Amino acid sequence: MTTAPPSTSGYIGRFAPTPSGPLHLGSLVAALGSWLDARAAGGHWLLRIEDIDPPRCPPDAVDWIRRQLEAFGLEWDGEILHQSSRGASYQAALDRLIADRMAYPCGCSRREWQQHGHYPGWCRHGPLHPGRAQAWRMRTDKGIQPVCWQDRLFGSQCLDPTTQGDVVIKRKDGLWAYQLAVVVDDAKQGITDVVRGFDLLDNTPWQRQLQVALNYPEPRYLHLPLILGEDGQKLSKQNLATAIPHDGTLARPVLHQALKLLGQAPSPTLRQADVSTQLAHALEHWSPLAMTAIPGRRPD
């Protein structure tokens, strides 16, 4: 949307919503946390639209999301990247994985393997059901074991990706899967810092294996505590979470609430301050370590 001054730190962050509907409080907290972290570091903040699943993406959702971000003062740098235009890059990455025997076709259905808890790698040495439509899976048994990284909030993490199963990177219907697309686009955009919700923390081992297999750099990770509804479930579009406003005046108390949920303790006197004033104060006092290191916070 705007062009920021040159980064003083080399930091490049991003917010990458799926346009399956308008943003809700949980997605605002993720956007706000990543924006604050980037701007406080003197870095760039990019907007990427993860529209690789067209049946889930209403045609007006992207414009709605843009208006919501603008209402909350969360301006992004440069052009918006749409994943729907990136198929050739994803195919090139898949071709590399196939050539290195890191990916294989699989026609097994979830119903066939769900009792195992995760896909057990039945098709690693050839498809069991060659007559079926085939997905493409990444082999977790050939990459780095275990995958360890330092989360900026949750600390040292080590997970064995083989316990999660061989993840789908291209679906049976020909659509690209999240795990491959996010890794390719983070590398394409030079993302140095990934700031996102705690629910995506256990995706990191698959993504780290893909980064190593494709010779991509490793970004830093900061996983934010989730925002839970009164029923204890994660706020999400599937759970019919209420959309945040796209009007700047109505956004003021919601922004204040989002800052509180990020542990930033904004002054009560700022609750009705315009968004630029609230953001300026939040930037001056931004501290990721102020967030409680638990995988869930309920809104007030």
Rank of each mutant, 00 (worst) to 15 (best):
T2C: 00
A4S: 15
P6L: 12
Y11P: 02
Y11K: 01
H24R: 13
G26D: 01
G26S: 02
A31K: 12
R39Y: 08
A41L: 12
G43S: 14
H44Q: 13
W45F: 14
L46S: 04
E50L: 08
P58F: 04
W64T: 15
E70P: 00
E70V: 14
E75G: 13
E79T: 15
E79F: 00
Q83E: 10
A88N: 11
A88P: 11
S89M: 14
Q91F: 00
Q91Y: 00
D95C: 02
D100G: 13
D100H: 15
D100C: 13
Y104G: 00
Y104W: 07
P105R: 04
C106E: 04
G107P: 05
S109E: 15
R110T: 07
H116C: 12
P120Q: 06
W122M: 02
R124W: 01
G131Y: 01
A133W: 03
Q134V: 00
A135M: 02
D141H: 06
W149P: 12
D151Y: 13
R152G: 15
T162C: 12
T162M: 09
G165F: 09
K170D: 01
R171K: 15
G174T: 03
G174N: 08
L175I: 05
W176D: 01
W176P: 01
L180I: 01
V183E: 01
D185P: 05
A187N: 04
T192N: 03
V194D: 10
D199L: 02
P205M: 04
W206T: 05
R208M: 10
P219N: 04
L222Y: 03
E230S: 12
K234V: 10
K234F: 10
K234N: 06
Q238W: 00
L240T: 08
A243M: 07
P245W: 01
P245N: 06
H246Q: 14
D247L: 05
A251W: 10
V254H: 12
H256F: 15
Q257R: 12
Q257A: 11
L261E: 02
A265W: 13
S267Y: 07
D274P: 00
S276N: 11
L279T: 05
H281S: 09
L283C: 05
E284I: 10
W286K: 07
W286V: 06
A293R: 14
